[in-house]
Amino acid sequence: MASEISTKEYITHHLTNATMCNTETGVAFNKACADAGFWQWNVDTLGWSIAMGLLFLFIFRSVAKKATSGVPSKMQAFVELVVDFVDDNVKSTFHGKSVLIAPLALTIFVWVLLMNLLDLMPVDVLPSIAGLIGQYGFGMDPHDVYMKAVPTTDLNMTFALALGVFALILFYSIKVKGLGGFAKELSMQPFGHPVFIPVNLILEVVTLLARPLSLALRLFGNLYASELIFILIATIGFFQLPLHFVWAVFHILVLPLQAFIFMMLTIVYLSLACEDH
């Protein structure tokens, strides 16, 4: 595929989401969505993220149903290892009282990890399959069919996750401290004098908004850069295999690390939100 088009077009094609939007003439895709306005749907991001979420639920539910107190299967042992790992981090980091934090942390860690692992798929496989489906199933030009398979390389996805965490931060802050206590925290820290309320508000609101922003941009930046390197390696042609293997081996360490960081920061932010002093 890289030999049929220029390197710039090849990279651009792989970094473009499959976009769907509503226009005056009906449903449109990608190029026809350029002037469609704000409401556009990246269907590949939605599809793969939902698929990874369902895969997570299927694996953990099937293991839970077949769990035994005797000698566990390899899958049960692996799931128990992941659950214990997340539970230990929650107990050591979260100092509030909520039975929802551990399941939330487990969901975030496994879901983000599964979405990240899609980055190990060879960059041409899924776009080529999507192009063949578009060509023979819908009569489309394969070059007009897009498939960006890693949801966490889409800023919309990482911001959606971060905004979900931000909503929980606000919820627990108001639940534990009360609306008045939360307002006082924003207006009377770090300087505890009414004269400094405007300064305190600026500092605290910026700090509060920086949390979801840092969550979203950190995950997106690392995965997008890694995916871009895979694509650049693919432009080499036949000699890409050794470099692809080396980068993939290194990437196996990066992908769980990014999921872990996202999970840990979520726990830390929610722990801070639950502090009532």
Rank of each mutant, 00 (worst) to 15 (best):
L228W: 09
L203R: 03
L219P: 09
L161I: 15
A225L: 05
G221L: 04
F238I: 14
M188N: 05
K184E: 08
A216H: 07
E204Q: 05
I169H: 12
A167G: 14
G164R: 15
T235A: 07
Y172L: 10
A167V: 12
N156L: 13
Y224P: 02
L170R: 11
F238P: 11
L232T: 02
P190D: 00
F166L: 14
Q240G: 07
L168Y: 12
G164K: 15
N222E: 12
Q189D: 01
L209T: 05
L209Q: 08
N200D: 00
L168Q: 10
F196L: 07
F196S: 02
F196A: 02
H193A: 08
P198L: 00
K184A: 04
G181K: 06
I233F: 06
L217N: 05
V195L: 03
L163R: 14
L201H: 00
R211L: 05
I169G: 12
E204C: 08
F220P: 05
A210Q: 09
Q240Y: 10
L203N: 00
L170H: 13
I236H: 03
L203F: 04
F171Q: 09
F182I: 01
S226G: 14
M188A: 05
A210P: 06
A216M: 08
I229R: 11
M157G: 11
A162I: 14
K177A: 10
L161S: 12
H244Y: 14
L243A: 01
L208G: 06
I231P: 13
H193R: 03
H193T: 07
I169E: 10
K184N: 09
G221C: 07
W247G: 00
I233R: 02
G192N: 06
I229C: 09
L170M: 14
L186K: 08
R218M: 13
L209P: 04
N200M: 03
I233N: 01
Y172S: 09
P194D: 01
V205K: 06
G164N: 15
A167F: 13
T235C: 08
F182P: 02
G181P: 09
T207R: 10
I233H: 03
L219C: 12
N200W: 01
H244E: 15
L186D: 03
L170F: 14
S187T: 02
F220T: 09
F220H: 08
E204P: 04
G164C: 15
A167C: 14
K177D: 11
S226D: 11
R211E: 02
V165F: 15
K177T: 07
L208V: 01
H193I: 04
V206G: 04
L170G: 13
L232N: 02
A160Q: 15
F171Y: 15
L232V: 05
A216R: 05
F196N: 01
L223S: 09
L163M: 14
S187A: 07
T235N: 02
A183C: 04
M188R: 06
G164Q: 15
L161C: 15
V206M: 05
V206H: 03
L228V: 04
I229K: 11
G237E: 11
A216L: 03
I233L: 11
M188V: 00
Y172G: 08
L161K: 12
V199H: 00
K175I: 04
V176E: 12
N200V: 02
E227Y: 11
L223P: 01
F220N: 07
V246M: 13
L217G: 04
L179A: 06
I197S: 02
I233D: 00
T153I: 14
Q189L: 08
N156I: 13
G221T: 11
V176R: 12
I169P: 14
